[in-house]
Amino acid sequence: MLDRLLRTETAVATYSGVVKRWECDRNNHWNVQFYVRAFQMASEILATAATGENPGSESTGFRHYRFHGELFCPETMRVLSARIAEGPYAGWVLHRMLKGKDDRLSATAIEMPAYPVADLPACTAEELQPALPRGLPATPHELVAVPRDPQGAALPTAMVGVVRPSDVDHRNCLQWNALASLCSGASHSFLNQIGLTADWINESNCNRMAVEMSFTLHGGCGVGDSLDVQSWVSDLGSRHFTTRHQIVNTQTGAPCATLEQLLLVIDLEKRKPVTVPEFLRDAARAYGLGEPE
């Protein structure tokens, strides 16, 4: 089946498309859920080729992403996929999203495949290098107890909605891009709570930017289920902070997915990261990183 796709010596072109205007953010960038969709379609093509059946969203249970260059409307992009042959991620799959006529690197993902990969070409070390985890470990998330605030109260939960038929794949499993979209709502809500408000963005001319992200799919929901997202700050550095989002089935409490994203605070004029502001440090301590000092 993969013979019907374009190939290079070290990869198969498993997705290609264009950035459509209705898939862009207000800043004309391709919304993150569509990167997630493209990588997931690439994954399902590999899984179908290897097994003869498309397992849908369950082609992988864990994927780690890095973002290198934004995609703007109406840029073209394609995904090249390969087997990782050596190192700690041997047996995993590398997806590289390349944009435009020059194949500039836009994003990467490595996934733990739920399908055989022996027939895939192996990537080179140079191709893998930009995809390697930097600030977020590439390890499937375990469910953890949600931290409490300094007064011992539960952190707020975002009620992100009910799973619709259009959110699931052909096997009634939540699509990865739908998951990303739901998490996006929760993430915006949480960041607003910790002070990254629209007013602050306008006044400071700074904004956050996700540069690394990891997703674990636990299952646990289908059409008609209501979902809640528990969010907290899970790590804090001088120029980055990490948020963690645990998606659970409202009715059953079953875990559905976990997302972590590593964010930089960017000076929008200089397009460079700045030190994480003090108010965010205080908020991080109140929202997940223990007692305020």
């Binding site: 374009l6 290609s16 399902e44 093509i45």
Partner: peptide, 12 residues
């Protein structure tokens, strides 16, 4: 000719 799109058909 060339392959200009690869992807998955979704329920929608």
């Amino acid at each position: 000719a060339t392959v200009t799109h690869a992807g998955i058909l979704r329920p929608e």
